[in-house]
Structure formats: C-alpha cells, structure tokens
Computed example of a mutant assay.
Amino acid sequence: MKETTFDIQTLDTIFNNMVRTMDQSKNDIFIISEQSRQSFEEMQSELKMVKEDISRVITEGDYLEDMTRHSRRRLADVSKSFMNYSEEEVRQAYEVANDLLVRLSINKMEEKQLRHRRDELDRRLAGLMETIERADQLVSQVTTVVNYLTTDLKNVGEALESARHKSEFGIRIIQAQEEERKRLSRDIHDGPAQMLANVLIRSGLIEKTYTEKGPDKALAELADLKEMVRSALYEVRRIIYDLRPMALDDLGLIPTLKKYLTTVEEYQKGVTIHFRSTGQERRFNSNFEVSVFRLVQESVSNALKHANCTDIWVKAEWIHDIMNIIIKDNGKGFDQKEVKDKSFGLIGMRERIDLLKGEMNVISNPGTGTTILFRIPLRMDMIDY
C-alpha cells in the first residue's frame, strides 16, 4: 500500500513539474512575441521616416539635375565664346558647375544609402512578422498540449483523479463565495443603507427645526452629524458595489467596469486609471460577467496594494470569439519566481480563468511594472439572450 502511494505521489510530482515547465515556456514565448511586436512597431516608424527622407532626397535630386543641366549649358556657352567673358565670369561658371556636380553626387549617394536602409528594414520587418506569427502559433500549440495534459490525462491514475477532485473543490468554493457576496450585497442594500438614508432625512428635518429656534451650537453639531451620516451611507454603498456591483446585471460588463474604475480612481489620490474597450461589446450570462469583473478587480487591487504605481491601464479587446483583458501598471514590479507560489491573489485569478477555459499570462520584473493578460474564449453558452 505504501509503495502504491509513493508511486502516485511521484507521478503527481512529475506531472505537475512537466505542466509547470510547459506553462513557463509558453510565458517565455509570449514575452518574445511582445518584444518582437515592440521592435516591429519601432521599425515601422523608422521605415516611415526613411521613406519620407527618400522622397525628400529624390525631390532635391531632381532639382539639382535641372540646375546641373542649366550650369552645363552656361559652361558650354562660356567655353564657345571664351573671349566675350571676363576671367571671373569663366571661373564662376566652372565653380558653379563643379559645385552642382558634387552636390548631385552626394545626393545620389544619400539616396542609394536610404534605399538600402529601406530594403533592409523591409527584410527585417518581414522576418519579425514571421517570428511573431511563429511565436503565436507556438503559444497556441503549447496551450493545446497543456490543456490536453490538464484535462484528458487527469483521468489516468488515482493521483490525477485526486487532482481533479481538488479542482472541483476549488470551483465549489469560488461559487459559494459568489453566492455569499450576492446575499450580503442584497442584505446591506435593503437594511443598513435604507436606515442611513432615513437618518439623513430626519437630520434635515431636525436641522430645519433648530434653524427656526436659532441655537447655533446645536445646528453646527447636527450639520456635522449630517455629514457623518452621508459619509457612512456613501461608504456602505461603496462596500455594496465592491461586493457585487448592482450595475453589472443592468448595464453589463463594460459600463460597470468603467464606473468601478472611476470610483477607485476617486479614492486613490495620485493614481490615474486609464480604461479603453475596443471591438463589438456583447452581453453574456451573469456568471461570466461576474468572473471577468472579479479578474479586473483583483488585478487592479493588487496593483494599488503592492505596485506603488501612479498609472494603471485597463484594456478590453473583443476579437471575434476571443476576449482579451490587459491590465498594466508602471509600478515596482516583482520577481515571479518568489511570488508565484505565495500570492493568493494570483492563485485565485488562475482558478477563475481556468473556470472560463481561458489563459492568463503575467509579465513582471523588479523595477519594470507588471502586465497581466487574460485571454478568454467566448462560447455560445455564455451569451445572454
């Protein structure tokens, strides 16, 4: 019995190490792809400038050729009628013709160099594009293998069956957390929030009564009480919004994210949050929209708590049957090897993205900020009709 347990544990360790290695390789390929894209954009900018320089040089060359032909005719006239011109005029004609020839020669050389640089940039751009395409293809292939290893092969052996039970247990925990948050949000909204609103109204009536009687001190105290109650009411509603945004069911994912990030920015002085959504926005079922909202919420929360950043960029991309969510900050970054197995925030996000059958990539190094990319497939069973 002990021997069987040992074999299962060994198999589980080997399997997990293999999946972890392949997942890290996928992240490395993703980094190469992103770096190649950045180089591609920089080369495109340089190529544009080179083409503009070529156009300028060609225009200048045409002008110099016209001037050179004119100077040659002038020199020919001077040579034929040498006796009709002074020595200074003859010398000047030769110097002008020679100067134009030199300038034209330099112009042609510059044009040749620019054309060579343009051709070189075209070749390098083509090579980079091939690298990017191959990297994307490799990421897709590795993802397919990892998905196969983490799904189909989990049916092999008692150890992998145990891992599947652990995954199901984690899913049930997350679902229970969401249900509890929904219940707590409803209870607070119907209870304390309404009570505080009534207290605020009553304080206004008391203020009016005391205003008519004229006790300044009591009026000042009531004014302070009113502000305190208003702040408490605002805070309670903010907590409700954090637990489960009411706007999510009514407005949908993107408007709710925009409202949430605006609210966070108001509370976090010195931090600017930039939000952008591209592509055709769509409505999906509640579980999907809540999961995506929590991914963004946790990512932004981590950046605010740990990154010491001044700017956070959140971008949602709707691309056919894929949704990309990118959260980037300009904070202090972190060593992924040290944080990877210790951060419950990252673990929770990976569990959520696994539930959505998506991918999560984290790019960070000390001093370089952090970028998190979520790639989520949009399936027909997610659509909210």
Results as ranks from 00 to 15, higher is better:
Leu257Ser: 04
Thr278Val: 12
Ala220Tyr: 06
Glu65Phe: 06
Leu138Ile: 12
Ile58Ala: 14
Glu168Thr: 05
Ala307Asp: 08
Gly331Val: 03
Lys182Asp: 13
Glu235Gly: 02
Arg276Ser: 15
Leu257Pro: 13
Ile173Met: 08
Ile327Trp: 01
Arg350Phe: 03
Asn155Thr: 08
Pro377Arg: 00
Asp119Met: 10
Ala197Cys: 00
Gln38Leu: 06
Asp321Ala: 07
Lys213Ser: 10
Arg202Val: 05
Leu153Cys: 08
Glu298Asp: 15
Gln35Glu: 12
Gly214Arg: 06
His70Ala: 12
Ala316Met: 08
Glu111Gln: 11
Leu196Ile: 04
Asp321Lys: 00
Val292Tyr: 01
Glu41Cys: 04
Ile54Asn: 10
Arg181Gly: 15
His165Ala: 07
Ser71Arg: 06
Thr131Val: 07
Gly204Ile: 01
Leu373Ile: 04
Ser25Leu: 02
Ile29Met: 03
Leu121Val: 09
Ile322Thr: 15
Arg124Gln: 10
Asn147Tyr: 09
Thr262Ile: 01
Val78Glu: 10
Lys315Tyr: 09
Ser140Thr: 10
Arg350Val: 09
Pro245Thr: 07
Gly331Gln: 01
Glu60Asn: 12
Arg181His: 15
Leu196Thr: 07
Leu11Asn: 15
Leu11Tyr: 10
Leu356Tyr: 00
Pro366Val: 10
Gly333Leu: 02
Glu351Cys: 01
Gly252Leu: 04
Ile188Met: 08
Asp152Phe: 03
Pro255Thr: 04
Ala135Thr: 13
Val146Trp: 01
Val314Asn: 04
Thr278Gly: 06
Leu205Ser: 09
Ile106Ala: 06
Lys208Trp: 04
Leu257Trp: 06
Glu212Val: 13
Lys217Gln: 13
Ser185Ile: 00
Gly252Asn: 12
Leu356Phe: 00
Arg294Glu: 10
Ser71Lys: 05
Gly127Asp: 11
Glu110Ser: 10
Arg118Ser: 15
Asp152Cys: 05
His189Glu: 07
Met323Gln: 03
Pro255Gly: 05
Val236Asp: 11
Val19Thr: 13
Gly279His: 12
Glu351Pro: 11
Arg172Thr: 12
Lys51Pro: 07
Tyr241Glu: 11
Ile54Glu: 11
Arg115Leu: 11
Phe334Asn: 14
Glu3Cys: 01
Gln141Cys: 05
Gly331Lys: 00
Val314Ile: 09
Glu52Gln: 09
Phe284His: 01
Tyr241Gln: 10
Ile106Thr: 09
Leu261Phe: 02
Thr256Gly: 09
Asp62Arg: 05
Leu149Phe: 08
Gln336Ser: 11
Pro192Cys: 02
Arg183Thr: 14
Lys305Arg: 13
Met195Ser: 14
Ser45Met: 07
Leu184Lys: 11
Phe374Lys: 08
Ser291Glu: 04
Ile8Phe: 09
Met349Thr: 07
Lys213Trp: 12
Lys332Trp: 00
Thr68Met: 12
Ala176Thr: 14
Val156Ser: 08
Ile132Trp: 04
Glu88Val: 11
Gln9Val: 13
Ile319Ala: 12
Asn330Cys: 02
Arg91Cys: 06
Lys258Trp: 07
Gly331Tyr: 01
Glu289Leu: 02
Val362Tyr: 05
Arg282Cys: 14
Asp381Gly: 03
Ile132Gly: 09
Gln35Lys: 05
Val264Gln: 07
Leu196Trp: 02
Ala126Gly: 03
Leu356Pro: 15
Asp381Gln: 02
Gly191Lys: 03
Phe288Arg: 00
Pro377Ser: 01
Phe344Pro: 11
Asp335Tyr: 03
Asn84Val: 14
